[in-house]
Nucleic acid binder design. Structure first.
Length: 283
DNA sequence: CGCATTTCCTGGTAGC
DNA sequence: TGCTACCAGGAAATGC
């Protein structure tokens, strides 16, 4: 599969972090004056939305791919972009799910959440209470924090025999790794996507950890310098896309060994890997 | 309980 | 050209 013109940029950790940095100066310390649910959507994804009205946004934080906005009344606004979620002050023409009215101190007092494919979430919980959100509740360590060490990563990989690719996507071993970066990190470190997590060779665990960190950091840098408007679907190729070695390159020669890269399905997700470089460990 | 599979949803696109 | 069928994805729900 190739990146075709108009293809959506899937929000992974680097793009969500870019969004967070944009939202912070806009939203921090504003009061929410009104909250309107625009479209008929599964209620659970927009639970308790009216509760945010009257509260002040204390911060704009990120946990994995989730945006967490603590409110001064003890609640927390959670935003997940899913595949197509866009947070914007400019009213979109279609697919608006939420409209917030904010403190009226300039022209940016309206917030719209647009979500074409309805995979996103926009809900209010009591601060830190993620029981209704199993992925967030069981979220692993932040990859860009000092807590993401070799020993921590090794310990969590020992806990599961699930395929390493699937386990990474579960967000349990480390937060924020999506389909693209999972494929990239596994290609980089020559690990077969189906390798049981607890069978990843010990010597490769530090390499995988390092690859995840490096790729995410590099991608954050690329997003920050290349995309002028993170809110829009950008059909042009972003800088990080040109760095991809595996994702989207099935049918092309591996840049390391020249063997044709394969496309497969792992855990129900499109998976790109090199049949020569990425071998399953003998067992 | 743990792991695997299915579901949600819509626009783009391949194929006829 | 117009129609149908299918695919992509993160997280939750369901199945085994």
């Amino acid at each position: 599969m190739r990146f075709t013109k108009g293809r959506l940029a899937i929000p992974e950790l680097p793009e969500v972090e870019t969004v967070r940095r944009e939202l912070e100066p806009w939203l921090k310390d504003r009061h929410i004056l009104g909250a309107e649910l625009i479209d008929a959507v599964p209620h659970v994804k927009y639970a308790n939305l009216p509760n945010c009205v009257g509260q002040r946004i204390e911060a704009v934080n990120r946990r994995g791919k989730f945006l967490l906005l603590p409110l001064d009344g003890g609640d927390e606004l959670i935003i997940h972009l899913g595949m197509t979620g866009i947070v914007t002050a400019k009213k979109p023409e279609k697919h608006i799910r939420v409209h917030l009215e904010l403190t009226d101190n300039d022209t940016s007092n309206h917030l719209y959440f647009q979500d074409t494919r309805r995979f996103g979430r926009f809900l209010v919980v009591k601060q830190g209470e993620y029981k209704s959100m199993p992925t967030l509740h069981a979220m692993g360590v932040e990859p860009l924090s000092d807590d993401f060490t070799d020993s921590v990563f090794k310990a969590v990989l020992q806990k599961s025999s699930t395929a390493i690719k699937t386990y990474l996507l579960s967000q349990k071993p480390v937060a924020g790794v999506g389909n693209i970066y999972a494929d990239e990190a596994l290609w980089q470190t020559k690990i077969h996507p189906l390798t049981p997590s607890n069978k990843v060779p010990a010597k490769k665990i530090p390499l995988l950890r390092e690859a995840i960190v490096d790729i995410l950091k590099k991608s954050i840098d690329a997003q920050g310098t290349t995309l002028n408007d993170y809110r829009t679907v950008n059909g042009e190729v972003g800088a990080y896309i040109s760095e991809l070695k595996a994702y989207g390159h099935a049918g092309e020669p591996c840049q390391r060994c020249g063997v044709i890269l394969e496309k497969s399905v792992v855990g129900g997700r499109g998976t790109h890997s090199c049949p020569y470089c990425q071998k399953l460990p003998k067992s």
